[in-house]
Amino acid sequence: MEQLKVELPKEVTDAIKTEVIKAFQDAKDDTRGKKFPLYMSKRQTCEYLGIANRTLDEWLKTGDIPYKHIGKTYRFNRNDLDKFMATK
């Protein structure tokens, strides 16, 4: 059986690739967002960043990492952490 080969214009194939990549990224972001809430505890933050609690404590002491301190509780905004890690 002979197969028919159709070539699409480069603009069309580029647009398809862009949309497929965007769909995968959106799906990944949705999954990650469900596991890690927008505002995280110290434990969740360590897991999210893949670092030890000791490392997070050092970053807190130096003031390097963005956080909110409410009473005795620390909260870390996931979006701020992403920006922070992009500069590390």
Rank of each mutant, 00 (worst) to 15 (best):
M1D: 08
E2M: 11
E2Q: 11
E2K: 13
Q3F: 14
Q3M: 15
Q3P: 12
K5E: 11
V6S: 05
E7D: 09
L8E: 01
L8R: 02
K10W: 09
K10H: 06
K10T: 11
E11N: 07
E11Y: 02
E11G: 02
V12W: 00
A15H: 05
A15T: 13
K17G: 08
K17A: 15
K17T: 12
K17D: 13
V20G: 03
V20P: 02
V20C: 10
K22D: 11
A23R: 13
A23I: 13
A23Y: 07
F24Y: 13
Q25C: 11
Q25W: 14
Q25Y: 15
D26L: 15
A27D: 11
A27I: 09
A27S: 10
K28H: 06
D30V: 01
D30W: 04
T31M: 09
T31W: 09
R32K: 09
R32V: 13
G33V: 03
K34E: 05
K34A: 01
K34N: 04
K35Q: 10
K35R: 11
Y39N: 13
M40A: 01
M40G: 01
S41M: 06
K42A: 06
K42G: 06
K42W: 01
K42H: 00
R43M: 10
R43C: 04
R43H: 07
Q44I: 02
Q44M: 08
T45K: 03
C46W: 02
Y48P: 08
Y48M: 07
L49Y: 10
L49C: 04
L49Q: 01
G50R: 03
I51L: 03
I51C: 05
N53W: 07
N53F: 09
N53G: 03
N53M: 11
R54N: 09
R54C: 07
R54E: 13
T55W: 02
T55N: 06
L56A: 00
L56Y: 02
L56Q: 00
E58V: 03
E58L: 09
E58F: 06
E58N: 13
E58W: 07
L60C: 06
T62E: 14
P66D: 01
K68H: 08
K68F: 04
K72Q: 09
K72Y: 04
T73S: 15
T73W: 12
T73M: 14
Y74F: 12
Y74E: 04
R75M: 12
F76T: 02
F76N: 03
R78E: 05
N79P: 05
N79Q: 14
D80S: 14
L81Q: 01
D82Q: 12
D82S: 10
K83M: 14
K83N: 13
K83Q: 15
M85P: 03
A86T: 13
T87F: 00
K88A: 05
K88G: 03
